[in-house]
């Protein structure tokens, strides 16, 4: 069942001089199994949208329906939402607090009704999927790990609950290139297994290469909803929204400006390279 957002608006400090409208009349539907990237300039309402989806903010207007129930409905059991929908906030390593990695990852399972062995199995699964050797890491202190490891432990804690929807806020900021790649591969794998991914990122490369649908937010409004190919095709517009496009897209755009006839819906390197090669080979034939 999907997530349906209908006419969602949110105003901070309503009725005071600091009144700010953070989300304005947003409607969208998220289908199961999608990989969605959310982009927008600082202050565009991305984080507010995430908090609203996670049921952490009650919308000023509109509704959010998850699997058929309004999550802000009077009778709605929020604990159901918590199990369905996992959120990895910015700098998730700051959320670690337990004395061992195993305890930290198991925390979300406390009231899940699983018995002790099942919990251990689940923790093992979550840590292994995040690239850890369970035996080696289980008893270590989460505070002694490197930044990238901490982040993966924090994510394991969210995954342990086996959410159907995973929301990630800037998950790759501060990771090095290989760390970024490994992390995105992990998310892609989870998505392939059916998990719905909603990922907020400034990084146009990671959105262009991995997401299949992009939501663009600007000043609290949804100003774009489509594939990266569609949305990145208008480089000038993306720039006017203070957003970048993926490097591969930028190269395709520069090539076109330089007079090379290259498709303008290229966002990822695995399409850019063949297109350039085809062009170069084609050019040879004409000579």
């Amino acid at each position: 069942m999907p997530i349906e957002v209908k006419n969602l608006s949110f105003t901070y400090s309503a009725g005071t001089p600091f009144e700010t409208s953070a989300l304005k009349n947003i409607s969208l539907e998220i289908k199961n199994g999608e990989f969605i990237g959310v982009m927008g300039h600082t202050g565009c309402g991305k984080s507010t949208l995430i908090r609203a989806l996670a049921g952490l903010l009650r919308p000023s207007e509109g509704s959010i329906v998850v699997d058929g129930s309004d999550i802000n409905g009077r009778r709605y059991d929020r604990s159901k939402l918590r199990r369905k929908l996992g959120v990895v906030f910015q700098y998730p390593e700051c959320q670690l607090f337990e004395t061992t990695v195993e305890k930290d990852v198991a925390f979300g399972l406390k009231h899940s009704g699983l018995n002790k062995d099942e919990v251990t199995e689940r923790v093992r699964w979550a840590l292994e999927i995040c690239g850890f050797d369970f035996e080696k890491i289980a008893k270590a202190s989460p505070m002694g790990l490197s930044g990238g490891e901490k982040r993966r432990v924090a994510i394991a804690g969210v995954l342990a609950v086996k959410p159907e929807y995973l929301i990630l806020d800037e998950p790759i900021a501060g990771l090095d290139p290989l760390g970024r790649e490994a992390f995105l591969e992990l998310i892609t794998g989870l998505n392939a297994d059916g998990m719905t991914i909603i990922m907020v990122s400034h990084n146009a490369d990671c959105i262009g290469e991995y997401a299949r649908r992009v939501l663009l937010l600007n000043g609290g409004e949804l100003v774009g909803d489509g594939s990266p190919q569609e949305l990145f095709s208008d480089v000038e517009r993306m720039r006017s929204l203070h957003l970048g496009v993926s490097r591969s897209r930028e190269i395709a755009w520069l090539l076109k400006k330089g007079g090379m006839d290259i498709p303008q819906d290229i966002c990822s390197y695995d399409r850019l390279l063949p297109a350039v090669l085809a062009h170069l080979r084609g050019g040879d034939e004409h000579d």
């Binding site: 490097r247 930028e250 190269i251 520069l254 090539l255 400006k257 330089g258 007079g259 090379m260 350039v276 062009h279 170069l280 050019g283």
Partner: peptide
């Protein structure tokens, strides 16, 4: 840089 790449590729053509 992307600009250098585009320039060289367009010249090659």
């Amino acid at each position: 840089t992307n600009e250098e790449l585009a320039e060289e590729l367009c010249r090659l053509k």
